[in-house]
Write a protein that binds this DNA or RNA. Sequence first.
DNA 1: AAGAAAAAAGACAGCGCTGTCAATTCGGTT
DNA 2: AACCGAATTGACAGCGCTGTCTTTTTTCTT
Lengths: 345, 345
Amino acid sequence: MGQQTITRATIFDVAQRASVSIKTVSRVVNREPNVRERTRAKVEQAIAELQYRPDSSARNLARQKSHLIGLVYDDPAAYELPSSGYIIRLQQGALRACRASMHELLIHPCNFRERGVGSALKSVIEDARLAGIVLAPPLSNMMRLVRAVQETGTPFVRISPGQKIRNHMCIATNDAEATAEIVDHLAQLGHRKIGFVTGDETHAAVSNRYEGFQKGLVRNGLRLSAKRVVSGNNSFESGERAAAKLLTLADRPTAVVCANDDMAAGVVRQAKKLGFNLPDDLSVTGFDDVVLARQILPTLTTVRQPLSRMAERAVEMLLKGKTGSQHEVVPAEMQLRDSTGPAPN
Amino acid sequence: MGQQTITRATIFDVAQRASVSIKTVSRVVNREPNVRERTRAKVEQAIAELQYRPDSSARNLARQKSHLIGLVYDDPAAYELPSSGYIIRLQQGALRACRASMHELLIHPCNFRERGVGSALKSVIEDARLAGIVLAPPLSNMMRLVRAVQETGTPFVRISPGQKIRNHMCIATNDAEATAEIVDHLAQLGHRKIGFVTGDETHAAVSNRYEGFQKGLVRNGLRLSAKRVVSGNNSFESGERAAAKLLTLADRPTAVVCANDDMAAGVVRQAKKLGFNLPDDLSVTGFDDVVLARQILPTLTTVRQPLSRMAERAVEMLLKGKTGSQHEVVPAEMQLRDSTGPAPN
DNA sequence: AAGAAAAAAGACAGCGCTGTCAATTCGGTT
DNA sequence: AACCGAATTGACAGCGCTGTCTTTTTTCTT
């Protein structure tokens, strides 16, 4: 049973069986208007009986574009593990949207350090007549590549782009608001004295987080104390040093918000070394949700970029077909784990 | 400069410019024989001048198949990190081969726990008219899926298939030989008394490793001592227990080969606890090259499945177009790190 | 019930390429 | 120079679908 027919049914076979023209079949298949209900049913039955499925090559040729969406991301030279989770999550989201809309996903890791990537990318896009492109960071910020994509005339969406461009579509997340929510969470747990460890200020995302921290304090009726803000440089060690400072303060904070996970891990390590019991004596939060965040003890409450959702929305935006500037923010997801608890009294 | 022409050159434009027929252009483009050198040059110049690139949709339609290779692998329910490195490595290899041959890669994670995956897979294959499929483990062993793929009539290659099937193409690695090479390595370092920690015997790969261990001893003129073989169950803890036994032996081994990395990590931990200095007093090896292998101290000498190479070879085998049974073994790569050193004297 | 407007259905020419087979040219022989 | 087989080249019909435009049918007016 279920033996496949030697040669697949074509639109012509369906038309014949339903006694209509091929154009009418095409209308039914593509859900075009102006088909009487009775006719539609007749055609649909013929389709079912013949197990007809449109041939995408033919359709692509006639429509002059494919049903392929390209996902372009940085090709880590050695494909080392750290970034693989990142990439897989992007792929997952993009794939979800593609499947929902009968599209396929073409992955295109691309090493921007090589010369000629731009034109190589253009070739792929044009050769396969991609229906759209999703550009993931950090490539979404490399103007050389963005321009290459623009030149193909293919619609594209950038994920977390640094700088905006004219007439762009993009999906971003909200570092600031997520950090503010971390503060909300801590405030709800009764914390009133909250410290912050800043990161490398040159990263836009990182300074957004500090901004969000301040916003969080304000909306929870807390005061920003300059003493409780110490600067780090994104490294584990700088986290340790920051903790050493913060925890020896006369009026020390009961919670420390860090601009990234590595520094948070450093804070945790240093706090333990100083004899603090986490989360009873001190709550700590990070940002990014790197693998390490789940490996240290206590596991780290942090914020995870909704990469999968962002990629999904990116593809959906692409397929919506609307042109013009569009900008969507997908809220980041707080990951509640064991490093945060009620404030000590 | 470099402004793209509004409408791409077609094969017809090229033919006209070179004053030949479109068929001749087609011959040149597809490297078919029977084209005079002079004609070929003329056509090639026209191609260059017009920046002609064949349209893949049209080609797909005429050829009745696409230039797309499908990579089918297990879709980890939550895309948790452990498997992402695995998948990325497969993708990398497949992509390398695809690019070399002007093909594109369609990724198709697929959750075999759901019902109907088989027919969903068939649809994708037939709709996109895939040129070939690569089935990665563990899917390569799920006969339900393999049969679905077979029914489409599309050529496919399985990676590390458990059971063979009639007229199959597959790529495997060599657990046994790799383990024997580990023994070679240790023997070269002067080790004569080598212990082994077995794993869960139900896994074919794992028992192959024990087999390889024995082979390695033999070919290095060493004797297999039953006392030095203790069984584990693949877990870290079982490694610790195994080490406790092995290292308290009167005539204790100077090196311990483990059937997987987790157990090796357990052995390392236990050995350190017992006061051994690694690798001076004891060498330890693992298998798999999990992330942990590079995180423990000393970093673990182990064996890594050549996933990327396997996927690459799989695609190449597919594109070679030869039918009939084919079976290729890609040797696993030993990863020399710090847990092995010269035997103590 | 005739006529006009709107809705439904169909005819047909591409889309850009490849495959088949026929036509031409070439190189070498007598 | 005429002739033959082999090497080249070309003509043209699809591949299966969509877009445009035309024809037919239905529905609504008066």
